[in-house]
Amino acid sequence: MNDWTMTRVQDRLELAAGVFRQMPDVKPQGYFNAWPDYLHSFADQVGQEPKMRQPRPSPRMISQADEAMLWLHWLEAEDAKLLWLRANGKPWKPICWQFGLSRTAATRRWHYGLAVIVWRLNGRKPPLRRSMDFVIKRARTGPRVR
Rank of each mutant, 00 (worst) to 15 (best):
M1Y: 10
W4S: 03
W4P: 00
T5D: 02
T5W: 05
T5R: 05
T5E: 03
M6H: 02
M6E: 12
R12L: 08
E14T: 11
E14N: 06
L15S: 04
V19H: 03
F20M: 15
Q22D: 11
Q22H: 08
V26A: 14
K27S: 13
Q29A: 12
F32H: 08
A34C: 10
W35P: 04
H40C: 13
H40Y: 13
S41G: 07
F42H: 12
A43L: 14
Q45V: 11
Q45M: 15
G47R: 02
Q48F: 10
Q48Y: 08
S58T: 11
S58R: 10
P59T: 05
P59I: 04
I62A: 14
A65K: 01
E67V: 03
M69I: 12
W71L: 05
W71R: 00
L72V: 02
H73W: 13
H73Y: 08
H73A: 15
W74P: 01
A77L: 15
D79V: 09
A80R: 02
K81D: 14
L85K: 09
R86W: 06
A87R: 04
N88E: 12
N88P: 03
G89P: 06
P91S: 09
P91K: 08
P91I: 00
W92I: 06
K93G: 05
P94H: 04
P94A: 03
I95T: 06
I95K: 02
W97P: 05
W97N: 15
Q98P: 01
F99H: 01
F99D: 03
R103I: 05
R103E: 10
T104K: 14
A105K: 14
A105S: 10
R108C: 10
G113L: 00
L114C: 05
A115C: 04
V116M: 05
V116P: 02
V118T: 07
W119R: 03
R120L: 03
L121W: 01
N122K: 01
R124F: 15
P126Q: 02
P127K: 05
P127F: 01
R130A: 12
R130M: 06
R130G: 04
R130Y: 11
S131H: 04
M132S: 12
M132Q: 09
F134W: 10
V135L: 03
V135D: 06
I136H: 03
R138E: 11
R140L: 10
T141C: 05
G142V: 00
P143T: 02
R144A: 15
